[in-house]
């Protein structure tokens, strides 16, 4: 697929790109639909309930009708909202969520862009979403959404630092920011083992980046009702919802690639005739399940303990991890 990029522009390869992008979009939409379904099922099972079971066989069409309902709903807007920003915010939140998927190598062959700075691209683009969230919080002209927006800004910016710092260890080990090379470098051992400290920091910070339990303060239902999207309804709300779950898709892919060996088979099972994408999906689903599991268990962080936890807790650990990694690598290279 990547060799399409090397070819000169022609009608054929441009249309191929468009087709591939649409296919990815559909895959993502399918994932989001069923991620929501499985989230509700898994949490339901953990809470002694059966989860959705009314629409379609086993409730499989539940999310489909939910989304249809959202799309058919009247598009409401508060009277004193900032019209332009109110409309812009969901787009701003959603567009980067989809754009980050371009660099993800889902298997050896399925990748859209093989950037040399894949990790950086992901981090840079994903931080645009926080702008969408703040914009939504401000433009809705609602105090709850304003507080939600502010919390979200503080949280996402703070947790981005340990997130990036925890990845640095992996980058040091690989010597590259290219996601494909990072996966290839894990042939012998997955990064999760030598980088266990970085992995833990990454998982926690990712949770905060995704605004998911226990870091769901920006939309804390019991405090801020719904936080930054309290005034949104219909398809604009659907965009926020979609952004949230697409980010989960993105973050799941990133964790798989950075720490869990991407499409590589685990435990030396390379001889099995299983395509890499299957391994990728399995690892990815493991992460997604972990998300749901956490959500079914954890209470929410307190707003005033959130930032100290990032700056005084996670960041030092991430820095120590970098230091240890650097020392070990220097030692191995004989430079120390």
């Amino acid at each position: 697929m990547t060799d399409l990029l090397q070819q000169s522009t022609s009608l054929w390869n441009v249309s191929m790109f468009i087709v591939a992008a649409v296919v990815l979009l559909l895959v993502v939409l399918f994932f989001v639909t069923y991620a929501i379904y499985f989230e509700r099922k898994v949490i339901g099972w953990m809470q002694l309930r059966t989860g959705p079971n009314r629409v379609g066989p086993l409730g499989l069409l539940q999310t489909v009708v939910d989304v249809t309902k959202l799309l058919l709903k009247e598009d409401t807007r508060p009277k004193d909202a900032d019209k332009a920003l109110y409309a812009l915010a969901p787009v701003l939140a959603y567009a980067p969520a989809f754009a980050v998927l371009a660099v993800m190598p889902f298997s050896e062959t399925i990748q859209f862009a093989d950037l040399g700075i894949g990790v950086l691209y992901y981090m840079a683009l994903s931080s645009i979403t926080v702008l969408g969230v703040i914009t939504a919080g401000w433009a809705s002209n609602n105090k709850y959404s304003l507080i939600g927006g502010m919390r979200s800004a503080a949280q996402m910016i703070s947790y981005e630092v340990p997130l990036v710092m925890s990845v640095l260890g992996v980058i040091l080990m690989t010597g590259s920011m290219n996601l494909r090379e990072i996966v290839e470098a894990q042939r012998d051992i997955w990064n999760v083992i030598p980088q266990i400290l970085g992995f833990c920091v990454f998982i926690v910070a990712a949770q905060a980046e995704l605004n998911r339990t226990p870091f769901d303060l920006p939309e804390a239902e019991s405090e801020l009702v719904a936080g930054y999207h309290v005034e949104y309804s219909g398809f604009r709300f659907a965009m926020f919802m979609l952004a949230e779950y697409v980010y989960m898709f993105g973050m799941g892919s990133l964790v798989t690639i950075l720490f869990l060996g991407g499409w590589l088979a685990p435990f030396g099972l390379d001889f099995l005739p299983i395509p890499g994408i299957v391994w990728f999906i399995l690892k990815f689903l493991l992460y997604v399940f972990f998300q749901f599991w956490i959500r079914a268990t954890m209470p929410r962080f307190r707003a005033d303990q959130l930032l100290p936890f990032a700056w005084k807790g996670l960041l030092p650990i991430a820095l120590v991890n970098i230091l240890i990694t650097a020392v070990v690598i220097s030692f191995q290279n004989g430079t120390l």
Binding site: I43, M46, Q47, L48, R49, T213, P214, D216, A220, E221, S222, R295, A296, T297, M298, P299, R300, F301
Partner: peptide
């Protein structure tokens, strides 16, 4: 109370 604190499951148990 746990629902207020942000944990969902205790409520159902």
């Amino acid at each position: 109370y746990l629902l207020d604190i942000g944990a969902m499951s205790p409520f159902l148990f």
